[in-house]
């Protein structure tokens, strides 16, 4: 039974585009899939290894622009989409290494700030180097995937299945990784870096691996994002995007894949589907009831208020998230109740 259930769910998810024929809904589900991938990536860094990265959207941008450079009229290069998933993942992973190598020895919150700075620099550089990046215009006319002669175009349905497939592959990969040698080193570092080092774990290598692998996931998400929209511009990769990914992770439960998926799905649907719809519901209500305030309200405006409230309340009242892993829950509650081990974490 326990083995059957996930299969049932996967099959059910595969049928969603057949049941819901509204293209904008499918598009929103596909975008949600992108958020799941991003959350997977950040989860390796923050959830498994306990390093805080704040400018994660920078790697997302690097993945998207890598694909845009190599498959658009920008330089007249048109490489095939499928191998580019791997190439962009590698490029983003490489940037993860380059940023991680000098900074990973920093204390937790300093690392957070370095990555935040990096996250501010990347979109600005993309904006300023207009000869190569198209500057503020970004790059348009990006090639869209083809499979056995079938062009994806702007139809959201094939992207939905693509995201679903990549998420399933990632799940398999992450599950194996988590129980591998490197996965156990990550968690050892998260629990107690000093002890991990004494146990003979090469903490630098493990942290670097986490950083570049996490970045690689963002790179994959970037390729899919660029292909689906067929355009990239610097404005889509700012701090707000990083916060959205972090909120998904915090809400669902860091370090636990079912939790991460749940968080990303909730935030994604809230962001891509429910808030835009809710705005219309409220406005219609306002028009019908002749309440001017309601008729002109825009709930999209307040989505960062929603994220803010999620971040604060979850951290205060359920720091392990909605669906935590057993170890993480034990950890967080032990630390919150007694002061001593917490000092060790500093």
């Amino acid at each position: 039974m326990k083995r059957v259930l996930p299969l049932v769910i996967i099959v059910a998810l595969a049928f969603v585009p057949l049941l819901d024929r509204n293209a904008s809904h499918i598009s929103a589900y596909a975008d949600t899939g992108g958020l799941v991938l991003l959350a997977f990536g950040l989860n390796i860094i923050v959830g498994y290894t306990g390093l805080l990265a704040l400018g994660f959207a920078a790697f997302f941008a690097i993945g998207a622009y890598t694909y845009a450079f190599l498959a658009s009229p920008q330089f007249g290069i048109h490489l095939n989409f499928w191998p580019m998933i791997g190439v962009s993942a590698a490029v983003a992973g490489l940037f993860g290494l380059v940023l991680g190598a000098p900074t990973l020895r920093l204390r937790g919150d300093y690392l957070a700030i370095v990555t935040l700075g990096f996250g501010e620099i990347v979109p600005q550089v993309l904006q300023n180097l207009d000869k190569w990046t198209g500057g503020p215009d970004g790059i348009a006319g990006i090639d869209q995937p083809r499979l056995f002669g079938f062009g994806f175009g702007f139809n959201p349905v094939p992207y939905y299945y693509l995201y679903l497939a990549i998420i399933l592959v990632s799940l398999w990969l992450l599950n194996n990784l988590r129980h591998s040698r490197i996965g156990r080193s990550w968690m050892a570092i998260r629990e107690d870096e000093l002890a991990a080092a004494h146990m003979g774990i090469n903490t630098t290598t493990a942290k670097l691996a986490a950083f570049s692998l996490g970045a690689a996931f963002a790179g994959v998400a970037g390729v899919l994002f660029a292909a689906k929209l067929s355009t990239v511009s610097p404005s889509g990769f700012d701090f707000n995007t990083s916060v959205m990914i972090l909120a998904a992770l915090v809400l669902g439960g860091m370090g636990n894949l079912p939790g991460v998926i749940t968080g990303a799905v909730i935030i994604g649907l809230l962001n891509f589907l429910i808030l835009p719809q809710a705005t219309n519901w409220v406005q219609t209500l306002g028009q019908q009831m002749h309440i001017a305030v309601l008729a002109s309200v825009d709930l999209n405006q307040y989505r960062f208020l929603v994220y803010g409230i999620i971040l604060v309340t979850v951290m205060l009242f359920r720091p392990e998230g909605l669906i935590p892993s057993a170890t993480r829950r034990a950890e967080l509650h032990a630390e919150a109740s007694s002061g001593a081990p917490a000092q060790a974490d500093g």
């Binding site: 306990g50 937790g108 957070a112 960062f304 999620i310 205060l316 720091p319 919150a336 974490d345």
Partner: peptide, 28 residues
Amino acid sequence: LAYRRLRNAPRLAPLITAIGVSLILENL
């Protein structure tokens, strides 16, 4: 309201809370 409860929690927790507080203030 936001930080004291987390004074002894891992560093990550209050930093994430602080980002949340920042978003809330901006939106208010």
